[in-house]
């Protein structure tokens, strides 16, 4: 019985951790959207900034992947 409660807590924790990936989704969407609106205002400068776009997306995405990693650790390693 105790083990089952611990199991339940673990799964709840995993689910909560997965919410963190939604934050990364918001962040990535924000970056891409802002890039697009900036690129539409000044299309000639957009091509030079795609590297910055990808760096920004990578940073935002990394945090989501961290939460995914925590979820995986909870699920399989704890």
């Amino acid at each position: 019985m105790e083990g089952d409660i611990a199991e339940m807590g673990k799964y709840i924790g995993v689910g909560l951790t997965a919410i963190g990936m939604g934050g990364a989704a918001i962040g990535v969407g924000n970056i891409a959207g802002n890039f697009l609106s900036g690129a539409l205002r000044n299309p000639s400068a957009a091509a030079g900034q795609t590297a910055m776009l990808f760096i920004g997306i990578a940073f935002a995405e990394a945090l989501g992947i961290f939460s995914f990693l925590v979820a995986l650790l909870l699920m399989f390693a704890v």
Binding site: E61, I65, F68
Partner: peptide, 13 residues
Amino acid sequence: VSHSIRLAGAMMA
């Protein structure tokens, strides 16, 4: 840390 976990995490996920 983020450099390595990003790649491994994205692939694994």
